[in-house]
Amino acid sequence: MTSQDSSSALSATAPLPKQRVKMSAARRREAIEGILYTSPWIIGFLVFIAGPLLASLYLSFTKYNVLRPAKFIGLTNYIFAFTNDPLFLPSIGRTFYFALASVPLAMIGSLFVAILLNQKLVGTTVWRTMYFLPTLTPIVAAALLWRWMLNPDVGLINFLLDKIGIEGPGWLSSTTWAIPSLVLMGLWASVGGSRMIIFLAGLQDVPTEMLEAAEIDGAGTWAKFWRITLPMITPTVFFNLVLGIIFALRTFDIAFVATAGGPARATWFISLHIYQNAFTSFDMGYASALAWVFLLLILLLTLVQFRLSGRWVYYAGER
């Protein structure tokens, strides 16, 4: 189907007379329509999300344990976080280390798998399902398996390393290797998962005749990838990058289940610190302050990415 087809089909069903309108009126109409289309979310945001969001912002300026009325204490929580909490700043550092180690690998890995599975393979359906399986393996089951694989004394990985003469590290039982182990576990769980699926969907937007034309011009596989495929899927790359960073920075489950923040706080991420303050120490006010500091950090990072995106993300339909 081409665009001509669709427009002719449209003109056949809707031959409305068109009036010339002033530019500003058109813009106003556009704005009204845009707000109308966005309104379900605007309403949903105001009704379901804005309240709790603002509540947590307010509570970050209070001493509040949920059970007793909140007491306003100004910036005390924020000051305490930066001056008196020996766990807060290191936990932020650790979280960024985890994100820095996992996001690039995850992006490259998923894109590679998506391209691989976008080839015309026999049994594509089965291959894709196999790659997707880790996403469907519940984290509790996966954690059990990984604990066995990474066990320093009797685990499979160190057993294999031993066979080729390498003394394996302690993995989850090592302050140095705990985060790389979590990165490894996270990669396995997600390389063929939703990120890959999103890339795969993005790859469908790459017009085949452009690739064919390039081929006729003598472009090799590599050149086609850099000059056509990659630029065409930048919107999905951007999406996966922005959300990949957000989710990596918010990592909670995997550390909670596999290491509980240990050993020796080696995987004590900011999310665990917030959780512990909120639900173990009943310091909901303080936890809210930590959460908002964290939110501002991610927001800043995301804004920078949006600012830079103009230089490398290509939108065919940008307005």
Binding site: R27, E30, A31, I32, E33, G34, I35, Y37, T38, W41, I42, F45, I49, L53, S56, L59, S60, V242, L243, I246, R250, F252, S271, I274, Y275, A278, F279, M284, A287, S288, A291, W292, F294, L295, I298, L299, T302, L303, F306, R319
Partner: peptide, 23 residues
């Protein structure tokens, strides 16, 4: 569509993904 406040609201939208759910 272009409408005033669109980009700001979009950033706020993304912001909802950033606040830890505990609080």
């Amino acid at each position: 569509f272009r409408f005033p406040g669109r980009d700001l609201f979009f950033v706020i939208t993304l912001g909802t993904l950033m606040l830890p759910v505990e609080v």
